[in-house]
Amino acid sequence: MSELTVRESINQALAEELERDERVFLYGEDVADYGGLYQVTAGLQERFGEERVFDTPLSETTLGGTAVGAALTGTRPVVEIMFGDFLAIVADHLTNYAAKMHFNYGDGTSVPLVVRTNYGAGDQFGLHHSQSPIAWFQNVPGIKLVAPSTPHDYKGLLKAAIRDDDPVIFLENKLRYETEGEVPNGGYTVPLCRSDRKREGEDVTVVAIGGMVDVALAAADRLATEGIDVEVIDPRTVVPLDKEPIFDSVRKTHRLVVVHEAATFGGFGGEIAAEVAEEALFHLDAPIERVGAPFTPVPFAENLEEAYLPDEDDVIAAVRNTLGE
């Protein structure tokens, strides 16, 4: 085991997969010479050369189209989109081509590409560089959406995503590149489409996504001092969702809080709430609580952005509501 930051664990995952499989290559805006806006890909071009790690012009449309084409030829492109907000530009290639081709041709065609991008507010990047775009893609069958929370999961899930035969959007929370955690030495992968119980508890189930897992765990620690025992479930892969552990947990605690960074309206939390309402309604002892952002663009001003982002207090209030306090 070693203590790594999220940035280091992603960098290691990329290096190990570039090393392991010559079909893997990495490109995007400023990923090579500069090492990525957040220095996630630092040193990789030096180590693997300009054929395997290279910069591109400012054209997300081209990034998407070339990635789909390259994946169809049998390579495994890993593309970085500098901000998740720009996924809107590359969305046509992802939703109408990468996601559809396996179903369209019926001959085993697969599009094994990975789009890495960051998401989230908190850095005063304003309304065009702070969004959390999960909901934009959750309704597109054929794309896997991965949003890890710990260095261990970031590394293991990115390696699994690169080895996966389907297109994967890999979402990195930009506030948490410096988060540290234990990472095993040597190669390992974390399977896609498996949720993880990050904390065991009896009273309330909190399902938190991506960067909100840390927030939920901190809230759970505070609630524990009052004797409120919160279970925290991290889906890790958002689509396709590993639902059973969530149902099992709700059948145990009878209370559900869903936490994500995007707006609650139309957000992924609504989908989890609906699934639980369908499968476990008669086990619920309280209305389901959703914690997320208000339905407004991410504000620029620091104080407004702070108010916009869900925090520990929001989670604690939601948990208390489910307990009828």
Binding site: H254, L281, F282, H283, L284, D285, A286
Partner: peptide, 14 residues
């Protein structure tokens, strides 16, 4: 409904 509106959670009803 002379009993007034008593509400019960689904799990309480179960």
């Amino acid at each position: 409904n002379p009993e007034g509106d008593v509400l019960g959670s689904p799990w309480a009803r179960t």
